[in-house]
């Protein structure tokens, strides 16, 4: 009868059966709200982001926040040890989380983390990649598509310049990085489905 919300941002993957679903969600919400606020602050720091309309800023953040968090926290997934470390410092084996019914989504997250980690990005490259991720989010609901496309183009150019100038002999890194964008969209959809399923039928 225990309820499961095995997100690394949650305080604990399993809540006692005595706790109501609403209580569990509210507790989880308190855990992920600071991380979401940090993504908003990060977005504000992207040159040009705040020149977009407020509505377009909201739309990009709605579809891109989880993707940015996935990149930011991919180091919580240890592909060698097959463990996930929650933000509270507690580490869980993939096997134990899989037993809680989190297999498919976690497998995809491990796969993504391993691929991104293998690229060995520096912190400033990772930050610029997160900016590209956010501005490459779903165009659904965007009013001024031209302004978003221009910002995206500028950010991709900046990322390419940074990476190719730092590693002139490696021409594969930049395209490999862009290939992670569709992975993130797929993960975003899987993650939304999982959370919505919990909200409907925990």
């Amino acid at each position: 009868g225990a309820k499961v919300l095995a997100c690394p941002l949650n305080s604990c993957p399993v809540a006692p059966a005595s706790r109501s679903s609403q209580e569990m969600w509210e507790s989880f919400s308190q855990c992920f709200t600071p991380a979401v606020k940090e993504v908003v602050e990060f977005a504000k720091s992207i040159p040009g982001f705040q020149t977009l309309t407020q509505q377009d800023q909201v739309m990009l953040l709605k579809s891109g926040t989880f993707q940015v968090l996935m990149v930011r926290f991919c180091s919580l997934f240890d592909p060698k040890e097959r463990t996930v470390t929650f933000l509270n410092g507690q580490t869980y084996s993939l096997a134990s989380l899989r037993a809680l019914g989190m297999g498919v989504l976690l497998d995809a997250m491990f796969d993504f983390s391993e691929k991104l980690g293998s690229l060995g990005l520096e912190p400033d490259e990772m930050a610029l990649f997160m900016a590209v991720v956010l501005v490459s989010a779903d165009r659904c609901g965007i009013v001024d598509v031209g302004a978003v496309e221009q910002l995206q183009e500028n950010l991709i150019k900046a990322l390419r310049t940074l990476i190719t100038s730092r590693r002139p002999d490696d021409t594969t890194l930049f395209p490999k990085l862009l290939l992670r964008l569709p992975d993130l969209r797929t993960l975003n959809n899987q993650h939304s489905d999982k959370l919505l399923a919990f909200r409907i039928d925990p």
């Binding site: 919400s29 979401v36 908003v40 602050e41 909201v58 953040l61 926040t65 939304s192 919505l196």
Partner: peptide, 27 residues
């Protein structure tokens, strides 16, 4: 469920975080 971010309460948090900035912005 075409708008998961709204259904999960994400939009509300995002709007409030953005509005905080707008309130600080000079006229």
């Amino acid at each position: 469920f075409s708008d998961p971010a709204s259904n999960l309460g994400l939009e509300d948090i995002i709007r409030k975080a953005l509005m905080g900035n707008l309130e600080d912005r000079p006229e």
